[in-house]
Design a protein around this nucleic acid. Sequence first.
DNA 1: AGGGGTACCTGCGGGC
DNA 2: TGCCCGCAGGTACCCC
Length: 285
Amino acid sequence: MPELPEVETTVRYLKEHIVGRQIQGIKIFSKKQFLDNPNLIVGAKIVGVNRQGKMLLFSLGNDKKILIHLKLTGQLVFAPHLENNQANYPRPIPFSGGNTLPGRATRVVIYFSDNSALFFNDLRKFGWMKIVEGKRIKELENLGIEPLSSRFTIKTLTSLLTGTKRAIKTVLLDQTKIAGIGNIYANEALFLAGVLPQRPANSLTEKEIKKLHQAIISVLKGAIRHQGTSAADDAYVQPDGRSGRFQSRLKVYQRDGEKCFSCKKIIKRIKLGGRGTFFCPHCQK
DNA sequence: AGGGGTACCTGCGGGC
DNA sequence: TGCCCGCAGGTACCCC
C-alpha cells in the first residue's frame, strides 16, 4: 500500500478507530518483521496516529512510539469486534469479502483491551514494525519534504531539480528529496505534467517545473480523495477491508499497450532505475 | 554522485 | 501439467 495516499488513508482511518485503545497483547507470526520486544508496549495506550512520508507512527502514552513501514504489500486492517476472546487466537474470524483474519499473510496482530484488534498483513514480508523512543528517530531524519505541506513550493521543487542530471522520475522517487511519492504517483504526476520520465531533472523549464509541482499535489490529493489505489493484485486495502478507488483514474500506470485517454496513442513501458515506467510518448515531452 | 546489480519474500501469469 | 522467467506499490547495500 505503500505510497503517501494509501498511508494517509490508513492514518485517517486509524486516528478515528484506535486512538484511545489500550494494547492488551501482541501476537507475532513473523519474527523478522517485529523488531523489538513486544512486552515493552503491552498495557500502553495509543494516543496518536501520524504519518511522515510512507512511514506510520503510533504514539503511545508511555513516551514510546511504534514505527511502521508497509513496503510493497503491507496492510493494516482493523477488526472492531472479535467474536472470540484473545485466548482463542489464532483462530480465523470472518471479515469482509469472505476473508478471515488472521489470514495466511498476517504477520503481527495487536489486540486491544476492548476486544478489537489491528492486523498487520504483508504477503511479501518486506514491511516491519519497531518500537522507537525519544525525539530523534533516525528513520525519519533523512526524509525529504512533505509534498502536501505548505513548505513544498515551486521554489523548493526547483531547488531540488536544478542541481542534478538524474532522471526526473528517479528524483521524484528519492525519499530524501520528497517523502511519499512511489512508482504509481511518480508515473502519474509526470504524465499530468507532460514531462518524459527519463528527462534529466535539470533540463526542466520553469514552466514544466510549475506544472509538475501542480501535478504532484493534484495527483496525491486526488488519490487521497479516492482512498488510494488498489492495483490488480489487491495488496492494498483500507483498514476496514475495502479497496481504494483511484485505480480507475490512473492515466498511465500499468496501461502499457492501451490508448492514451488524451491523444489515443499507445502508452509505453520502459525500465528506469529498475522500476517499471509508463508514459505517453506523444503527450509527454 | 549516482548508476547498476542484488537482496529481502511470495505469488501470479505467460511461454514453451 | 510442469517448469522457468519476469514481474510486482520499497528500500538498503554493494561495487564501480
